[in-house]
Amino acid sequence: MLIDWFTVFAQIVNFLVLVWLLKFFLYKPILKVIADRQEEIAKQLNEAELKKKQAEEESLLFQNKNKEFDQQKAERDKKLNEESKQLQEHLMAEAKKDVEDQKIKWLSNLKNEKDDVFRDLSQKLQTELFSVMRKAMTDLADIDIQEPLVDVFLQRLKTLPQKEKDDLAAVLLVSPNLQIRSAFEIPEKLRIKIKTALQEAFNKEFNIDFVVLPDLIGGIELLASAQKISWNIADYFVTLERQINEVVDKNSEKNHAK
């Protein structure tokens, strides 16, 4: 017979013993190792996932910071640009103002210098002219210039506009004291002539005080209180000075325009 029942029973027992032994020595340790390893892998995967998440969060944070930084930089650049523009405008305005001030000052100085120069020039010219004229007339025609000057002065007194004459008369009515100023010593003959002329003009006698003032340069002045009638070379030079000033101003404007 192919089946031996004792052997069958023995083999069942053998197999069950083998199951128990292998369970203990083979499956249990190996399954434990596999489970541990899977647990370890799962743990590592979790850690990796966690680190990945952290890295992503940090990356996001970094990107946000970068954006914020860029924004701040742009704002700062804009502010700096505005400030530099304002500063530039301010400096430009200051520079313009300085230039303008310097120009005004320079023009003022120039005007002052010009005035000084013309004043000196006119003074010298008057002096020289009067001196030359007097010398020339004395030398050539034996005529003193003082007398013609007095004549011209008296002539001017006669042809004085009515309004000025009235004003002077009003002043002389209050105070009969007069002062005659001249650049030279008026001779007695001419003094009498002047007194006579004045009496005829205003029908009144005056206390005349003759004063020599070299600055008048070849001229005569009548001074009564605040009223003054004068004729001298300076009047001519005032006209001359005005004409020269006009010429100089034109030249100066041309140079400035260039």
């Binding site: 192919l2 089946i3 052997t7 069958v8 029973f9 083999q11 069942i12």
Partner: peptide, 12 residues
């Protein structure tokens, strides 16, 4: 190779 063994396993 023994039917007793295979029978034992089948019975199990």
């Amino acid at each position: 190779g023994s039917l007793s063994t295979t029978a034992a396993l089948a019975i199990c």
